[in-house]
Write a protein that binds this DNA or RNA. Sequence first.
DNA 1: ATATATTTTTAGTCTTATCTAAATATACGT
DNA 2: ACGTATATTTAGATAAGACTAAAAATATAT
Lengths: 217, 217
Amino acid sequence: MTRSEENYIKAIYHLSKADKKAVATNTIAEQMQTKPSSVTDMLKRLSEKALINYIKYQGATLTDEGTKTALSIIRKHRLWEVFLVEKLHFSWDEVHVLAEQLEHIKSEKLVDRLDQHLGFPEFDPHGDPIPSKLGVFAETTKKLLHELAVKSRGRCVGVKDSSSTFLKFLDKIQIALGDEITVLDKEEFDGSMLIQIKERSFRISNQITTNLYIRMI
Amino acid sequence: MTRSEENYIKAIYHLSKADKKAVATNTIAEQMQTKPSSVTDMLKRLSEKALINYIKYQGATLTDEGTKTALSIIRKHRLWEVFLVEKLHFSWDEVHVLAEQLEHIKSEKLVDRLDQHLGFPEFDPHGDPIPSKLGVFAETTKKLLHELAVKSRGRCVGVKDSSSTFLKFLDKIQIALGDEITVLDKEEFDGSMLIQIKERSFRISNQITTNLYIRMI
DNA sequence: ATATATTTTTAGTCTTATCTAAATATACGT
DNA sequence: ACGTATATTTAGATAAGACTAAAAATATAT
């Protein structure tokens, strides 16, 4: 498998996650920042390798083999992200780009050793589940904060808007990745919430609650 | 820089290390397992990028920029090797192939963090020195065991013949990477040596002494 | 239902990195 | 020094992966 093939497989996986329908050529092109004609070329190649089901003008779906491949790449990506954050102390918003390179390193033994070294983590720094060697992984329980009910409790695992202004703002009001959050009150009028982090409780705006991912505890 | 360009630069560096003369096209082809014509193509490209000095029919030498590039790749290679051995507990004979992939990961920050994480090691698991960020590194003091004088002392850092039969034999007679060795006696007749490792002293053959690398302490 | 807009594919070109075969330059032996 | 052997380069081809422009298929609107 070439690096490019792997990237297409990954893209198709992510795009077909939401709805199970075949993924359109243009959709892939947009995701991959390439031209539709390049995508068509690649879809033919992947189809020949039996990694996708491809019907002209109808888009593509992953075969079982393709799904297996996608999960293996995602497993590597997320394990490297954990490594970068936990061991090399990168911040969780800078690891994605690096993991995009590291995910293509070819060695099953390396991935397994890394997994072990990290203590078999189930989630990456963004709260996304890490597929096991066999391709099984936890159902994603990640929710936006504003979806939580009053009195529910979760751990802050990621942001939707990863702009640096937002990240800096979170830092300023002292919300960090990994913090446990309890919802004390929800205000219907403006969507704001009264939350508790550690011993502090304070009110945060709708702009924050709709951009902060929480994993239920 | 493409991966292939990096590999050529590295090859030229290693080949011109011994003697300072220009490296021949065929020599590079052999090292890289490619055809001389492919090498010629690449030499032209690298020359245009000012990474090598190349004169037709006369071979290539690295420019300052090329040397800097080579050292940066070697730094990454050796740091990853240390990581694989120290943190993921790979054996020192299986890390080279993996490091050949990892050395191409592009991120200065990652390398520096890795360096720090490993405690700024000066040598890789094979006893080769690790260039610093600025490209300086310890003079290689690695010697073959049979070059050592009686009473000298060193640490076992590598093997010349990395065949698995030799590695297994070393294991059998309980010589491991990192062991401190003292030369107690040298026998001119057969080249054998009486050595001491920890509390044990025993005699080893010429075949071993000419294939075991030692770094002086 | 038919014209128009959009999506997708095809055809042909480009770059990188490789190859083979042929041509040319350098080196070696007597 | 001269012919042969070896080393190196050139020329032309191939494959992956991208592109542009044009053609074809599908979707949409009135």
